[in-house]
């Protein structure tokens, strides 16, 4: 793709293909693409609407799945991008229009006024310090997530949160309860919890993805848990799991297409003498290989009734 900023519109008539590329969006993928292209010898225009490149990555503590320090990965790339002779950075810029065809595009870019000479600025920050009007750095105003959720959900979340102390230590219990209420943790709920408990979103996300009790995708109506603990393993649990996977056509962590069953695995439910153990909703079953077919049929036809709890046990 050839990229030409508005000032150079004259080139428009030239039909030969250009060896230059415009990358729109300066997040980590944009940065990496630019670096790779630039190293391969293309002229790269890297456009981002923000004042600086980097995107969401600098806001994260760690990266998935390796838990590496995210700034440690990003920072060298930021420097490399700004220094690369083949990359032209266009920050505070928005793409307004695109014409032409592959190999010969004309792009209209709107560059916002910065009133600072980028070439000379060393980002010392002194101007912010002394500016009487803008003495406080202008952070983007945080939107109230509640406006994006429906009232009923807001009420549900508020109710759960009000049962716990409003601080960081309630994070896990609050998420546990919400996971139960919504059957998973919707994105808006996670954002809302972060705001109310005043815990950084990255931390809420970190916790929500760390523990197996939480899921970020909706679960089916019924949950089938297969124990893969050691005792169940030596008594044939892997074969039971294979059987269930074949029978339902899903992998652990997935939900059947009709939304009926979610398959999960756990490491020991503490009923090892029963192994291999399969829990359907809250009922424990001893399922030796070959027995799942009958169980699921029973379950579907509603015959598999929960075993009554002893009466002495209070809820």
């Amino acid at each position: 793709m050839a990229a030409i900023s508005g000032e150079e519109a004259a080139v428009k008539k030239n039909t030969s293909k250009k060896g230059s590329v415009m990358v729109v969006g300066g997040g980590i993928s944009g940065i990496q693409s630019s670096l790779d292209l630039a190293d391969a010898g293309f002229k790269v225009y890297l456009v981002d609407e923000n004042q600086s490149i980097g995107g969401a990555m600098p806001q994260l503590d760690k990266t998935f799945p390796t838990n590496d320090c995210s700034m440690c990965i990003l920072a060298p790339k930021l420097v490399a991008t700004s220094r690369h002779p083949n990359i032209k950075l266009m920050t505070a810029s928005e793409v307004k229009g695109l014409q032409g065809e592959p190999g010969n595009f004309v792009v209209t870019v709107n560059r916002k006024a910065r009133s600072v000479d980028e070439e000379l600025c060393t980002a010392c920050g002194d101007c912010v310090e002394i500016c009487p009007v803008r003495f406080v750095p202008q952070l983007p105003e945080e939107k109230d997530v509640r406006t994006e959720m429906n009232d009923e959900d807001v009420k549900k979340v508020d109710e759960v949160i009000s049962n716990h102390p409003q601080d960081e230590s309630s994070l896990v219990p609050v998420l546990e309860d919400l996971n139960e209420v919504f059957n998973h943790l919707p994105e808006m709920v996670i954002r809302y919890v972060s705001q109310v408990l005043d815990v950084p979103l990255s931390q809420v996300y970190n916790v929500a993805t760390f523990f197996t009790a939480f899921t970020l995708t909706p679960r089916g109506e019924h949950t089938i848990k297969v124990c893969l603990g050691t005792a169940c393993h030596v008594r044939g649990a892997p074969r039971v799991l294979d059987e269930i996977k074949l029978s339902l056509g899903i992998e652990p962590g997935e939900t059947t297409k009709d939304g009926m069953f979610t398959l999960e695995t756990v490491n020991c439910l503490g009923t090892c003498a029963l192994g291999p153990v399969v829990v359907m909703d809250d009922e424990y079953h001893m399922v030796t290989p070959g027995k799942f077919g009958d169980l699921i049929e029973d379950f579907k036809s509603g015959i598999a009734k929960p075993i009554p709890k002893p009466e002495g046990v209070k809820k």
């Binding site: 601080d167 960081e168 230590s169 309630s170 994070l171 896990v172 219990p173 998420l175 546990e176 815990v199 931390q203 970190n206 916790v207 760390f210 523990f211 197996t212 009790a213 939480f214 756990v266 490491n267």
Partner: peptide, 22 residues
């Protein structure tokens, strides 16, 4: 209530999770 992570049995990890961290 522990939310399902073996490593949380380790004492420092357990305390981190009571404090509301992973």
């Amino acid at each position: 209530e522990g939310a399902g992570a073996f490593v949380c049995g380790e004492e420092t990890a357990l305390m981190a999770s009571i404090e509301g961290r992973a």
